[in-house]
Simulated assay, not measured.
Amino acid sequence: MIRLQLSPITTVQQAQAMLQTAINVEFGTLPPYLYAQLTILPGTNAPAAARLRSITHQEMIHLCLAANILNALGGSPKLQPPKYPGPLPGDIGHDGKVLTLHILPFGKPAMQQGMNIEIPVDPIEFPQLELAASPTKAVTIGQFYDALDAYLKTLPATAWQANRNQIDDKQFFPGQLFAVNNYADAHKAIQVIVSEGEGASTSPLDFSNELAHFYRFEEIFRNQVLTASDSPQGFSWGAPLGVDYAKVFPAIADPQVHDFSKEPAAARMAQDACNKAYSAMVDALNLALNGDAAQLGIAVRKMFDLRMAAIEALHAPLNDKHKVAGPAFIYKKI
């Protein structure tokens, strides 16, 4: 799971700041995860693509749930698009070192990066699985949320503002998203976020008996299905997943820092369309998370526009005819 620096929480304002950090982290994972997903060639790598789609969908749900908690505490969520390469908000890291994230096309490096982001404090070692020693100097987002949950539990009922700028499953992600109006709702939301990211301490499964994000990335990285077995851990690495890393668009890494001014007009136009859709999506989401419910539909349409623009970009060769560029996820105020 994502690693964040942990500070003692003694005030509602500090809890609001921690929730804003969590929102920024959840949002910051989306461009790297989406880039990996979008750069898979159509009609190939179906199991990997399905796993990446489920992860990105759940990260969006986590973002909304964290925003719901912040709104219920009287705060005002604000998406802050990060720059890549660069650290995610909260100084994610391993062994006390900040993790620099990149936007990478589908491949083993992108899957390893996903594992680095989502790693639990104590990854479960299954038969055949080899992992580096567990980090000791940083804290996981699970521990981060545990500390937040412990503080929220102490708040009186009057600290919660029911029905304030909430997004629920009637608006977004049917059956998966819910409003936060009190501590019980906030506790449930935190359990969902932590469980889906890192699983349980003794199981790779989340609360709905699905593999947590870290282990889904690991399945793709290893090209093996994590299967229930009679091993002491309850699971073993089994049949091939069916990953073919050759079936990928020849997309460049880190398109945010690429100089598109010298590229063909079609590539420049595609990037402009990607940035315009991404910026409009961010603006609409910011309004939606702060009570303008009508903006949620606009945000969803802009997500579709971004996907269409990304497809155009991935089919527009650069001067190096063997390379293309997916969306750079550059925010420009409209």
Rank of each mutant, 00 (worst) to 15 (best):
Q16L: 14
L30M: 13
L30F: 10
A49H: 12
L52M: 06
T56P: 01
M60W: 12
I61M: 05
L63H: 10
A66D: 03
A72W: 12
G75V: 08
K78L: 15
P82K: 00
P105F: 14
K108H: 07
P109L: 00
A110M: 03
Q112M: 10
M115E: 08
I119F: 07
V121W: 12
P127V: 11
T136R: 08
V139G: 03
F144P: 00
D146V: 02
A150P: 04
K153V: 07
P156G: 11
D169C: 01
K170D: 03
K170H: 12
F173N: 00
F173D: 10
F173Y: 13
G175F: 08
N181G: 06
Y183T: 02
H187G: 01
I193A: 12
I193S: 06
P204A: 11
N209P: 02
I220H: 06
I220M: 06
I220N: 00
G234R: 04
G234D: 11
G242D: 07
V243I: 15
H258N: 11
A273F: 10
N290H: 06
G291P: 08
D292C: 07
D292T: 15
I298E: 08
K302C: 08
K302V: 05
M303Q: 11
A316D: 07
H322I: 08
F329S: 02
F329E: 01
K333P: 00
